[in-house]
Computed example of a mutant assay.
Amino acid sequence: MQETYKTFLCRWAIVVAMTSPAVPTVPLPAASPRFDTKVVVLLSDGLTAWQELNVTSFLMSGITVSAPGLTGQPYRDGDDNVYLPMLRQPVLVMTAGAALLRAARAKATARADVAVAVYTRELFATGHDDANRAAVAAVGADDLDLVGVALRGPRNAIDRMIKGARLHD
């Protein structure tokens, strides 16, 4: 069974408290909200580190604009510097083989309530947005050489689509 975001944070907080008593603490909210949707980035097995980061960042830029209200409020530090808002909910980054990426894309595009972003191998060789769109448009959906897929939709539907994927390590 996969570890949840909340469980990971709790375990991390316990380890930090036990091993570093002098570390200042930041109060966490009393209860983490449960989101009706889930956001997942599926990465192809075998990508290099720079490719994983590149694919994840591009895919998440698509997810953040897939519906209004997905980002929170701007951040502000103690000196009153303002920073851009970020996605309001956790993002799972997982890895899977080519067959699972293709199946997840196909299932997601068949549903109106799931947002999908794709990244194909050809996009590593392009240099701008128009070239990226042309590279995707040149290939039929079933023949896309997917190296990443991002999904946002109902939790149970996304869980079924990514069954068999592994948490990225």
Rank of each mutant, 00 (worst) to 15 (best):
R34W: 03
G72F: 13
Y75M: 09
D45M: 01
R105T: 00
V136K: 08
G72N: 07
R111Q: 14
V26P: 13
V40L: 01
L101I: 02
P74W: 15
A104Q: 07
W12H: 04
L144D: 13
T37V: 08
A103H: 10
R34N: 09
P24H: 10
L146S: 12
R111F: 00
M86C: 08
T71I: 11
D143L: 13
L87P: 06
A117D: 03
W12S: 04
T56V: 05
A13I: 02
L100V: 09
C10Q: 09
R11F: 05
S20V: 14
G69A: 13
F124V: 08
P85E: 03
E122C: 05
D113P: 02
V136P: 10
Q2F: 09
A98S: 09
T37Y: 07
S57G: 15
E52P: 01
I63L: 01
R11C: 05
R160S: 10
H168F: 03
V39L: 00
Q2K: 09
M18H: 12
L144G: 08
A96H: 01
P154L: 03
Q2H: 02
G72C: 12
T37L: 08
V136E: 06
P24L: 13
L92N: 13
T120P: 10
F35M: 07
E122Y: 07
H168W: 02
G97C: 12
L84G: 15
P21E: 07
A134F: 12
A134R: 15
G97Y: 09
D79W: 10
D113I: 00
L92K: 11
A96Q: 01
L87G: 13
D45G: 00
A98N: 13
A22S: 14
A22V: 12
Q89F: 12
N54P: 02
R152A: 01
T4W: 06
T4Q: 04
T19Y: 04
L28H: 06
A117H: 03
A104I: 03
D79R: 15
L47M: 13
A98H: 10
L42K: 03
K6F: 15
G62T: 03
T126Q: 08
A117I: 02
T37G: 03
V114H: 02
T95K: 12
V23F: 13
I63P: 00
A110W: 05
V147H: 04
I14A: 04
L53V: 04
A165K: 01
R11S: 09
T126G: 06
